[in-house]
Design a protein around this nucleic acid. Structure first.
Lengths: 414, 414
DNA sequence: CAGTTTTGTGCAATCGCTGTACAAATACAT
DNA sequence: ATGTATTTGTACAGCGATTGCACAAAACTG
């Protein structure tokens, strides 16, 4: 256990200024001053102190004249609105998928200021793809006109948290890549670079800004083209295990005597319950991978219309998925389960089947049913990658003390 | 996320005094002052400040005259020895097993000052067993001659953290018991009562004081007579899930089409790999439960001597256990695995078989093998139950400010 | 317009922490 | 023995975020 960082006057990283900024960030980048004060749990004095600190650092702005909005009607002085300052640092976020590459500029609060999407050829080689990534990053960094807090990258692979090593990138023409070094080497500036697994990052974003808000133990399951990705967000932080490889739910054993998986085991869940398995269950080709999400959606629509083969396939996969979820409930005791990608659609079609399997195979589920909800964010992993950069920014706030304010310390804000 | 408790002067619960006491507790109740200062990560001044605070609260004592010990030889002034004061509060700990009942008085640092053991009749009824528990608690509380910080109880059941409700007590003549209320009602004093699952508590104690020390993600597996218990200690705290029911590894599915388990599912791990399964695999009776641990040990000794039936049984169970562990590695990415109870003995007999299965079925294990070690503590769950009481004591230290020291604030200690 | 309610600010006091300087207590070389 | 190096404990002034309180500001209510 590394000793926590202690600030110059004994207040550790949980000081009010950074907590205030975190609250604002979690609130989406805008909130009333009174809301923040209340959630901070201390007096208005201290909140004011912390807030002026943030204003002096040019991280947040306060509306001079409080703008009344929505159900603010009530007696009492209306509260100022606080929002992220246009001078605050931003994160550059990258999301590498099988067929697309997204790069974005994301502000504190989780708002994407700009998103660039490029198509990706099938099974690209390492050099070319990282050249494209870093070229886009340099461009967006130049044109952002804001301080760059760092770069966050979402990879379709288990990622070692220590150094960003991508253990087994899915469906790409390479394996075992030191991604963080590759990105760093392609940049002109010494921006800090963070790498994360796509499912973990999507889950993180959903918890911060999407359907997972407020959950204490959020289990996230998704499909990214093929395979099954999972993540657990525990009290607001991604559970990564010792090295960052945790929650490889796709390689949970669904059938110990099943067919060999590429991971070396047998009958892995993603071998019998991912998008390709769904296609196979409907006697349809599971190749090529390109476009398989679209073809799976077509299949599901057929099931919705009542096509017997499609319905049977959906039912089959739903049963196995429900069984897998039941096992995860027994292990993780979540209070919310989010389904992303095609799994959300699958649940929409076969919720009773999935729920029945969960109920039968998990005594915890029978004791207290766990709500299952579809994920809501559009480019969750991209926002999650940004979170990778912005979260440390909130933590380390007090290490770099604010420069003394230009006016006298007690000068009024307005 | 509940707002963290803030002390009277803005320093939150991670202040130096409580951190210092935590360090001392983790060090087993005794350490040199220099060690503590170093691990605290701040100057000697601040450490001294925190330490005098603890001395004023009569929680710790400092040896007036530093006693040179072990390899302390070196230049420089020798450091004082700091230890838990004999006036500090103690925890009362209870460990209810199938055939025994342990009650103990445990000091900060994790030292059991006194342990009372009583036999328990087969399948006792709720009233009588809790009468016995509370009678023992009252007695030890009276005779302790120390402030009582609270009561911690280890139950052979999943326990709801919120209120200590025992969901499904194993092998007892009752089900669904509000254990915390039952204990509280039987006490004369308003001691805080904490209830925990036996595997969780044993794991916690092993992490604090046993073979798990220093692990970041410690997976713990054990058998308590029958069934398989599991726990995960993440960065020093037990992972309990949303309600405290997490890590029910015994009901992980080992064979989806296997026999029905009492939990309603099929082919649960503890149905095919616990002590009873081992007996059955050797064509021996798995009843009665009383004494089954002894009979299983006899069987294992036969296997060690080379008896073919016993060897085959051990091999069979070891294979299934290894497979289960592999799945847990893929999900949890631990950096250490502790085996308690009979599992330690099983590993001793069949380590290669278990390791082989882990390697084959987990690609993470192949990437970086996870060390498997036997648990070391004797009455781990008992110490863990005490930990349940002592840990909050460390946290909430600064809420109850120290009474002003009798002498002047800057008075020398000795 | 007076009364109520909620919110922002000013001010003195507080208290744990910091850094520095100094004193204490040992080992080691001479 | 004696002095030096080395490490550890203590004293002291200063700092700064926080606290509570009092008061001002800005809305609604009747």
């Amino acid at each position: 256990m590394s000793s926590s960082i202690i600030g110059p006057n004994g207040n550790d990283s949980a000081n009010n200024a950074s907590r205030l900024l975190s609250l604002l960030h979690h609130a989406g980048g805008e909130a009333t001053r009174a809301e923040l004060t209340a959630r901070l749990g201390c007096g208005r004095s201290a909140a004011g102190y912390a807030l002026t600190d943030l204003v002096n650092r040019e991280l947040v702005r306060i509306d001079d004249r409080p703008t009344a909005r929505r159900g603010d009607s009530g007696p009492g002085r209306p509260s100022h609105h606080v929002h992220i300052a246009p001078t605050s640092p931003v994160a550059l976020a990258v999301h590498l998928r099988v067929d697309t590459l997204d790069v974005a500029v994301v502000e504190l609060g989780g708002r994407a200021l700009r998103v660039e999407r490029e198509p990706v050829e099938a099974r690209p080689d390492v050099t070319s793809i990282f050249l494209r990534i870093t070229r886009l990053l340099r461009k967006l960094g130049r044109e952002a006109g804001r301080p760059i807090a760092g770069v966050g990258v979402s990879m379709p692979s288990p990622v070692r948290s220590e150094d960003g090593y991508a253990l087994e990138p899915r469906h790409l023409a390479w394996a075992g890549v030191p991604t963080r070094d590759l990105v760093r080497e392609g940049l002109d500036e010494p921006w800090p670079v963070h790498i994360g697994n796509d499912a973990n990052l999507a889950a993180l974003a959903e918890h911060r800004h999407g359907a997972g808000r407020g959950a204490h133990q959020m289990l996230y399951l998704t499909t990214e083209h093929i395979g099954i990705g999972g993540a657990l967000v525990t009290e607001g932080t991604v559970f990564g295990g010792a090295r960052g490889y945790a929650m490889e739910v796709g390689h949970t054993t669904a059938d110990p005597d099943g067919p060999r998986c590429s991971c070396g085991s047998r009958g892995c869940l993603e071998l019998v319950a991912d998008t390709r398995a769904l296609m196979r269950a409907a006697y349809l080709p599971d190749d090529p991978v390109t476009g398989i999400e679209y073809r799976a959606r077509v299949l599901m629509e057929a099931a919705e219309r009542g096509d017997p083969t499609a319905t049977a396939a959906v039912d089959h996969v739903a049963t196995l998925l429900g069984s897998g979820i039941a096992g995860l409930i027994n292990l993780l005791d979540p209070d919310r389960i989010l389904l992303g990608g095609l799994l959300a659609r699958l649940y929409q079609l076969a919720a009773p089947r999935i729920a029945a399997e969960m109920t039968e195979r998990s005594f915890l589920e029978r004791a207290v049913p766990v709500p299952v909800v579809p994920a809501t964010l559009d480019c969750a992993a991209l926002l999650g990658a940004a979170e990778l950069v912005l979260a440390p920014l909130l933590q380390t706030l007090q290490i770099q003390p604010a420069q003394p304010p230009s006016a006298s310390p007690g000068a009024p804000i307005g």
